[in-house]
């Protein structure tokens, strides 16, 4: 159990930031992970009153506040329309509704947990993170920094920004049971015309790669998808734990990537068909 003497319900990001400069204080997300730690800290910083529990949609991007719950993320109309089934698929295995009502996007992203479905999703989507002091940076930069420097560690994550550059996205995971931690997570997306694949629960934290081989350049077929999956699996190190071995995870990277990429092709086909239909209609008018 996490023990502490002070509870700070801050009124501003500045206040939160200042309190967080003290090593003995920690910022609360959903507290699900923090509470499992057997340690005593000085105080906890609660961002609940800072309006960070909102998802804002503009022409260019979604801005997802750090305190948005995973359940709100899952149910947001705009995001659902934009990301389709991948959003739901990346979240529905996370324990249950009452858990996702507590867990926050900020908690999941800031912690850079190896098992994080959320990190895997946003990494493939080329999202950005916005810190109070450090400002905006690509999530990929934040996720790959190892270890975090002191400044970032003591900074306050305000939001995840998802620019609207996503053309298609597909998400899959392998789990030993439906609500277990994943054995492997995998998200493939076409962002700004580039295929990106992120892989998490390796069991190390999620990382991503883009299609540097141009394997998919001439179209996605079962053959190119399989070859690409194999190539992607070679790009990542995997490890073993009680849930699965490194070898198995390697194989799963190839399989999930292949399936995700095939799904991207389906989505693209559907979009083309739609566009074509609209154009035809326009022509007739």
């Amino acid at each position: 159990m996490l023990k502490f003497k002070q509870y700070y319900r801050v009124k501003s990001l500045e206040e939160a930031y200042e309190l967080n400069q003290k090593k003995s204080n920690v910022v609360l997300g959903g507290m699900l992970w923090l509470k499992l730690q057997r340690r005593t800290v000085g105080g906890v910083i609660d961002l609940s009153d800072l309006g960070l529990d909102q998802i804002m949609e503009t022409e260019e991007a979604f801005t997802i506040g750090a305190m948005v719950s995973l359940r709100d993320l899952e149910q947001h109309e705009g995001l659902r329309a934009y990301l389709g089934e991948a959003l739901h698929e990346s979240l529905r295995h996370i324990v249950g509704v009452q858990f996702r009502n507590v867990a926050t996007v900020g908690g999941s992203i800031f912690g850079r947990f190896g098992f994080s479905d959320v990190l895997t999703l946003f990494l493939a989507l080329d999202a950005k993170v916005k810190f109070y002091h450090a400002g905006e940076m690509p999530l990929s930069v934040y996720a790959s920094a190892a270890p975090l420097d002191k400044e970032l560690k003591n900074d306050i994550l305000e939001a995840v920004i998802l620019p609207k550059h996503v053309e298609a996205v597909a998400y899959r995971s392998v789990r030993n049971s439906e609500t277990d931690f994943p054995v492997l997570t995998c998200c493939a997306a076409k962002v700004n015309g580039v295929y990106r694949v992120s892989v998490g629960a390796r069991p190390m934290r999620a990382a991503y790669t883009a299609d540097l081989t141009d394997m998919l350049k001439d179209g996605i077929t079962p053959e190119t998808a399989a070859a690409f999956g194999k190539w992607v699996s070679e790009q990542f190190a995997t490890g073993s734990n009680v849930r699965a071995s490194a070898d198995y995870r390697k194989k799963m990277i190839a399989v999930l990537t292949k399936r995700n990429v095939m799904e991207l092709a389906e989505t693209e086909k559907a979009v083309h068909a739609q566009t074509a239909a609209v154009q035809t209609k326009g022509g007739q008018a």
Binding site: Y7, R9, L28, G30, M31, L32, K35, V44, D46, S48, R71, V97, Q98, F99, N101, V102
Partner: peptide, 15 residues
């Protein structure tokens, strides 16, 4: 009105 885990909710947060 939302279902949450009370084991993982800080009492102070329901102010």
């Amino acid at each position: 009105e939302r279902p949450v885990l009370s084991c993982s909710t800080l009492a102070a947060r329901v102010e």
